[in-house]
Every structure is written in structure tokens, then in C-alpha cells.
Design a protein around this nucleic acid. Structure first.
Lengths: 197, 197
DNA sequence: GTCTATATGTCGATAGAC
DNA sequence: GTCTATCGACATATAGAC
């Protein structure tokens, strides 16, 4: 593993753990074991290193969400599986966290990968939800784009609740409650009224 | 307004805008106009000032949520009103933000007011939801405690989505979607099957 | 209570040798 | 590519007069 790779990996970890503003070049140097000279040789500034680390964190996140696009099972089953997927509630989301970092929030360049990642995840959610509606698993009057934002927010907000209480319970409750609502939003059972028949 | 009050008010603003870690005593001094000596006279450390400011922000937040406990209208109407209440999506929640600040997260003393505030708000949500269930406005098989976490998460997570896109749209979509789900979770219409009649 | 002066450490970066 | 040395600015206080 090259020195450069070690820098990016370490910065990625630290940005997940402590964010950008509160991570110093020294923190990165000490954890990675890479010297001062090397660090500034590979990255002209802390911000440049952060950008590389952020792109890496985004790339880590996206494959998981593509599980929503899978073809192996029913759309609603995929939605449930992705929603209830094991997650470390007390660590939070390595991408979502960036939105609360004052120095990332104010920097369009650093915010851009976050915006792109969320747009991508939203697309996967919306496609799966639309498929569930089309398959008759969810009521036809629901709006897939809206619901996609709702479910993303449940996860992102669940982290906030869990960290506040230092307990993963609220995170799990929040998503279980969302699942209850989705199930309650199944079309009224009417097995013999299929309009396409 | 006393010097002490100006310090607390200014620190409250800055913690909302930039968090705790990235707000320096100097920032507070300059915005408040209070001198160095006065500042350390009233508060022995930055952390002490932050604690006072945090208590203030929590106190700002709680009255709004007690709107959920009101008696003037139906429980579901109160829930909808509080969920859809005007909020500045791009600023985020002045209490929720603290959960993402590395130095708050790791400090049980600073995290405590956040935990207490959220527990309080959760209680108001759960009471209102329970009342809506009891009134037959929501299906009887729903869990009020869980749903309370879900709706809190929708708001907290909505802020994250809005800031990521620098657009309040996702915040509004997320809560509108939650509202759609709540309405879809009304008991099946059966006006003449009231078991108590 | 408020002021100015000072102190110690860290941040984020640069210089220049090897 | 990596090293050590150094830099000016800022963070977070402390000292002590008024």
C-alpha cells in the first residue's frame, strides 16, 4: 500500500469519526504513519486530501444502495431489506455527516460529492418504490420521489437520534416505524379486482 | 441586556451556525462585543459557555413541540400541523446539529441536554400519536413510540438532505411523504362498524 | 466586572536538504 | 518521495491592573 493510499484511507476514517474541520493534518500524519514531507508532496493542502477522502467514502457507500436496484426479489422486499440492513447507528453515515461540518457546508467543492451521492441514492430508492407501486405492493396514489426522500431522511435522522441517546434503539425504532407505515400503505386487499384481468 | 446574556446569546447563534468545535472564543468576543476579561470572568472556559448556550437552545426548542400536546384540535391535525410547521431547512436543527459535533459527541456533559431535549420531544410525539390511534384516526396496530421516532427522524434527516443539495426541497418532500404515509395508515373506512356502539 | 498584556500550544503550510 | 526545521496565525486561556 502506497503512502498516498494510506493518507487517503486514514483521512477517510477520520472524516467519518470526527468530520473535516476538527481533523488536523497532524492527526492524519500520526495515524497513517506518513511523514510531513510526504503528505504535502502528495496533497498540496488539507482540503485536497479531504476531497480525495470524501470521494472514497462516497464510492464506499454507493454499491450498497444499488442493492435496491436488484432483480432477484420483489421491489418491496428489496426496500425492506435495504432499510433494515445492519448499520452502525452510533457511528452515523460517513457521507451524511459532512453536511453538518461547517467547513464542508460552506465549500461548494467539498459539498458536491455529497450532493451527487445523495442524488444517486435517491434515484435508487425512487426506482424501487415506483416498481413496488407498479407491482401493486404499495398504493397507487403514493409519490415515489417523495417517499424516497422520506425513507432516506428516516435513516439519516435515525443516526441523529441514536447519537443523542448514545443508544442504537431510536435508530432501529425509527426504521421499524417506517416499515410499519409502508406495510399499512399496501393497497386494500381485494384479490379479485385486478383491473388488468 | 447584560454582558453575560450577550455572551450566551451569541454563543447560541454560533453553535447553531457552525457548531461547537469550530467556534472559537474569539468569534464569540467579536460578534458579541464583550471583552476578553469579561468573558472569562463570567465563564471559566469555552465549554462552560457552550453548556449555557446549549441549555438556551434547548429551551428555545421545547415550547414549539408542546404544540403537539394542545387540546384545541384533533390529535392527527396537531401532528400534521407540527410536522408541516415552517422551518428553515438549510439552517438545520440547533439541537440536532450538536450530535454531529465531534467534541460534543464525546462529552457526556454537553450531550446530556441534547438527550434530554430529544426525550422530551419524543414524549410529546408519542402522546399525540397514541391519542390519534385511540381516536381512531390511525390504525390500531401501529406503535406510537416507534412512530414518534420515525417522525422525529424524518425531520432531522430532512435537514441533512436539504443541506446536501443546498435546497429545501428534499426536506419538504420528506415530510410530505411522511404525511402521505400517515394518511394511508388511517383505519379502513367503515363508518358503521364502531365496536363501542 | 472589565481592561490590556502575555503565555503555551496547535494549525496548516513552506523551505530546502537528501 | 521522504525527511527535519521553521513559520505566522490563531486557539484557549492566565495575570494582574483599574
Amino acid at each position: 500500500m502506497t503512502s498516498r493510499d494510506r493518507l487517503v484511507e486514514t483521512m477517510s476514517e477520520l472524516m467519518w469519526e470526527r468530520g473535516y474541520a476538527d481533523t488536523s493534518p497532524r492527526d492524519v500524519r500520526e495515524r497513517s504513519g506518513v511523514g510531513q514531507g510526504s503528505m504535502y508532496h502528495h496533497f498540496p493542502s488539507k482540503r485536497d486530501l479531504a476531497l480525495a477522502a470524501l470521494e472514497r467514502n462516497v464510492a464506499d457507500l454507493l454499491p450498497a444502495s444499488s442493492e435496491l436496484d436488484g432483480e432477484g426479489s420483489s421491489p418491496l422486499a428489496r426496500i425492506e431489506a435495504y432499510l433494515m440492513r445492519p448499520r452502525d447507528a452510533l457511528k452515523g453515515c460517513k457521507v451524511g455527516r459532512m453536511t453538518q461540518d461547517p467547513q464542508v457546508r460552506e465549500d461548494p467543492v467539498l459539498l458536491a460529492p455529497v450532493a451527487r451521492a445523495f442524488a444517486q441514492v435517491h434515484l435508487s430508492w425512487a426506482n424501487a418504490l415506483r416498481a413496488a407501486i407498479d407491482a401493486g405492493e404499495l398504493r397507487g396514489d403514493l409519490d415515489a420521489d417523495r417517499l424516497a426522500h422520506t425513507l432516506m431522511a428516516v435513516l439519516q435522522g435515525g443516526y441523529v437520534l441514536a447519537i443523542a441517546q448514545q443508544d442504537p434503539g431510536p435508530f432501529d425504532s425509527a426504521r421499524a416505524g417506517a416499515l410499519d407505515l409502508l406495510r399499512a400503505a399496501a393497497p386494500a386487499a381485494a384479490p379479485d379486482t385486478d383491473v388488468t384481468s
